[in-house]
Design a protein around this nucleic acid. Sequence first.
RNA 1: GUCCCGGUAGCUCAGUUGGAUAGAGCAGCGGACUUCUAAUCCGCAGGUCGUGCGUUCGAAUCGCACCCGGGAUGCCA
Length: 614
Amino acid sequence: MQTFDPIEILGARFREGIARAYPQVGMDADPLISASRQAQFGDFQSNAAMPLGKRVGANPREVARAIVAQIDVSDIAEPLTERSIAGPGFINVRLQPKALATLLDGLDHTEVGLPAAEHPMTVVVDLCGVNLAKQMHVGHLRATIIGDTIARLYERLGHRVVRQSHVGDWGLPIAMVTAKLLDLEARGELPARLDLDDLNRLYKLAQAECAGEQRALAFVRRFGSNAKIEAELSEIDAEADEHLAHAKRVLVALQSGDAKVRAVWQRIYDVTMRECLRMCARLHTLITDEHSAGESTYAEELAGVVADLAARGVAEESDGALVVRVEGIEEPCLVRKSDGGFLYATTDLAAIRRRVQQIGADLVVYCVDARQSLHFKQVFGAATRAGYATKLGATEPSHLKHAAFGTILGEDGRPFKTRSGESVKLADLLDEAVSRARAEVEQRSIDLSDAERQEIAEAVGIAAIKYADLSNDRVKDYVFNFDRMLAFEGNTGPYLLYALVRIRSLFRKAEAEGIPFDPHAAISIEQPEEKALALELLRYPKTVRSAAEALEPHRLCGYLYEVCAAYSTFYDRCHVLKAESEPVRASRLRLVELTGRVLADGLQTLGLPTVERM
RNA sequence: GUCCCGGUAGCUCAGUUGGAUAGAGCAGCGGACUUCUAAUCCGCAGGUCGUGCGUUCGAAUCGCACCCGGGAUGCCA
């Protein structure tokens, strides 16, 4: 694979040099190339001599000398000499400005260094995870946008990606809502039009009606307890039991394919998914109807899965339940309850089997809350034991990874909730961000039309929320703060959008002034700000690959912020259109254009909307 | 009890494979607008990297013990 990353190029040279200097070590020694932290030491350094000194039993400075003697980097860097060696054995490398121009040229002409993978994998990303009859709330934000960004990262690398939303559309809670709707229908009170708010109300009502203990508790708190009240309580409990029994009957009817029940269920499904998919679109994620693979779609397979596990001795009986024991984990994976019912682990096993053996996944990524870590360890272990994680005809199992994420916290450090303790509706959260962005746009972009300002506010608000989430280390909790994420200074979505706007604005201005852009003009890197920017740009391909590999979008966020910061400094110090000479202007225009392409490509890969003006 | 995750500047966070003097942003202080969009840039100040011991030429990073916070923990999903 062609590379324009100085770290990779120097790495290859050093690896060869080490092999020549120490044949007994060969090519497997790590060249340990990294960017120098301080300009006085040059641009890059190799730390290979120290561990190598230990390995061959020699003084690390001597080792450094031996390596330097075997390496020729004169085509891209200043020649290595005795003076390149510093401290305990650091080898410092200073690039030639001309080499930098050549590398930028190469990056420019190869899809910014990321051509499609030669051997594409199939990657299934489990994301979003909504439930029927419930509004998307703040808890779904991370599963949706982190999952979508991980999917985009693999797509950008040329892999085949299948997004799947494991919709919670089956089981008793759904049957309870279905029962409510059937009651309304029987009484002729079912409205012709239902929205998700209606269903959400019915969901809560059904939950309350079936939760006898809680109702009884509320009753006692309100009135105190005596003999008469206790009679009242048992009546409430009996009522709840009847509601629950009714729901269970509906569940059985649903599972056995009763047409009338199924029709009502379908209506709940359609109403929920219509609103959730609209929210996914507003979030600028590529999640559509075809990506829904709800729990209900596995219902028919569960009995077969359990029978298979039992027949092959993978599962065993324990206290009346059927479990799969997993090495290294104390708690076994329960696949069948003692009453014969299946559990969510059963569904997940069926899902892994389908994803690996039918869809052909080489990698399945689960973008799900960190609290489910144990569950996924069990399920992954059980699936691997059962052979469900191995593609048909393959010898090694595919990779199953849990991309766990932390909780969104409020200012008080507690999970983010409304004042009344309810979870925050995602729609409300987005509206708030957009309206705050709108207020800023009103103040600053007075020359734009109303429609344009609304469009910009929408993009800025959404980008702010998404970037705030994606830029944090996935597994950590983070504190949600509108003011901070919408600030236009610092590591925020709006700052990145603004940098791109300045680039686009510069090209509009160039066009207006009749300054042509020559995509083949010679690049020359002279100023320190130009060099700093150039070095950042060359890091792009590797950053995307490592973010995908580690399933960590925040690596790409941090990188893009560095690019924008380097560009802002460059922009401040190095005039482009008013450059001192024609060749310098042409060179800088190319640098700016390439910066714009890397930035736009990166933002697209993260899934952030961009704007032309703001 | 056991297991998992976290603890870095007043606040919010980065820190890649163990490398030279631990970095950003915000807030604070001081500068830069006859502009290529100042929604920006530059400078100053701010640290017992939770604590201790160990491994190493070298530890925020690896190991052990402990402290603090969060989470999970067999028949809900």
